[in-house]
C-alpha cells in the first residue's frame, strides 16, 4: 500500500451563488511532491488551492490534509492551517508591523512560541530568503520582490508541512521574478511539498513533478512537465499553451 497522500481531494465541487467555480476535482499530492497548476484566468486555480486551507468553503466532496478532513466552518481549522503555508499574488504583508513582527506573529499566536525563540526562527528564515538586513523595516518600504520573499518567510515560519503558492510572481516587475523563483526552487530542493499556481514554464520544467491543467473549473489534463509542455494531449491545453507562448 502506498503511504497516504498529504493532500487528498475527491469529488470537490464549489459554487459562488449559482456559478459553478469548481466541478468534480480529484487530486492527490504526496509528501514531498511538487505540483504546478496552470490554466486560463478564471479557470478556478485560486479557488482550488484556497479550498485546501479553507479560505473558501466548498459545498461538495472531501478534502483531507495529512489525513484529517477539512470541513467548512469546522472547529480547529487553525491547527490545519499551520501545516499549510500560503503565499499570495499580492503578498498581503501586514503593513503596520515590521518585517520581523510579520514573521513572528503566527508562531507566537498559533504555536505558542515565546518571543525570543520566534525571533530567532524568523531571523533564520529571513536569512534563508536573503533579506535578513531588512528585518526592522516596514513592508511598504520594500520592493515587490523583497515583499514576496518576506511573505514566503512568513509562511515558512509556521514550519508547515506543505506550501501553497497562488501566482507568486504575477504582480512583480520582471527583474524581481528571478529572486523569488530562486527562493522557491531552494525550498523545493529541501523537499517541501508544494502546490504552485504559476505560468512560469521554466520553473515548472525545473521543479514540478506534475503539471495540472485546469479550465472552466475542471482538471482537464495532468502530466509530467516535459510531456505537458511539449505534447499536450487536449485541445484546450494546446490552445492555452499557444496563447501563453504568443506573449
Amino acid at each position: 500500500m502506498t503511504p497516504s497522500p498529504l493532500v487528498e481531494i475527491s469529488g470537490l465541487c464549489k459554487w459562488y451563488d449559482d456559478f459553478s467555480a469548481l466541478h468534480d476535482i480529484n487530486l492527490r499530492v504526496a509528501e514531498g511532491e511538487k505540483v504546478v497548476i496552470c490554466g486560463p484566468s478564471g479557470s478556478g486555480k485560486s479557488t482550488l488551492i484556497r479550498c485546501i486551507n479553507q479560505l473558501e468553503a466548498h459545498q461538495l466532496g472531501t478534502i483531507r490534509v495529512a489525513g484529517q478532513e477539512v470541513r467548512p466552518g469546522m472547529k480547529g481549522i487553525e491547527a490545519i492551517r499551520r501545516e499549510v503555508g500560503m503565499v499570495f499574488q499580492g503578498f498581503n504583508l501586514f503593513p503596520h508591523k515590521t518585517v520581523l513582527d510579520n514573521l513572528t506573529l503566527g508562531p507566537i499566536r498559533n504555536r505558542g512560541m515565546d518571543r525570543s525563540a520566534a525571533r530567532k526562527l524568523a531571523m533564520d528564515y529571513l536569512a534563508k530568503v536573503r533579506i535578513a538586513e531588512q528585518a526592522d523595516k516596514y513592508p511598504p518600504q520594500l520592493s515587490g520582490g523583497q515583499q514576496q520573499r518576506v511573505a514566503i518567510a512568513r509562511a515558512l515560519c509556521m514550519q508547515p508541512r506543505m506550501m501553497l503558492f497562488d501566482e507568486p510572481t504575477s504582480a512583480l516587475d520582471p527583474e524581481m521574478i528571478a529572486g523569488v523563483l530562486d527562493v522557491m526552487e531552494g525550498l523545493a530542493r529541501d523537499g517541501m511539498t508544494m502546490i504552485v499556481v504559476t505560468h512560469e514554464m521554466g520553473f515548472a520544467r525545473r521543479v514540478a513533478d506534475r503539471v495540472v491543467f485546469m479550465d472552466e473549473g475542471e482538471i482537464v489534463e495532468t502530466a509530467p512537465p516535459e510531456q505537458f509542455f511539449n505534447a499536450p494531449r487536449t485541445d484546450r491545453a494546446k490552445l492555452f499553451l499557444g496563447q501563453l507562448l504568443a506573449h
Binding site: L55, E78, R82, G85, F88, N92, R109, A155
Partner: peptide
C-alpha cells in the same frame, strides 16, 4: 481593510480574536 489582510491572517492560523486584535 483589504480582504487580503484577513486572508493572510487566517492563512497563518490566527484565531478570529487575534486576527482582529493584531491585524
Amino acid at each position: 481593510i483589504d480582504r487580503g489582510q484577513w486572508e493572510a491572517g487566517r492563512a497563518i492560523g490566527l484565531s478570529r480574536g487575534n486576527l482582529l486584535r493584531d491585524i
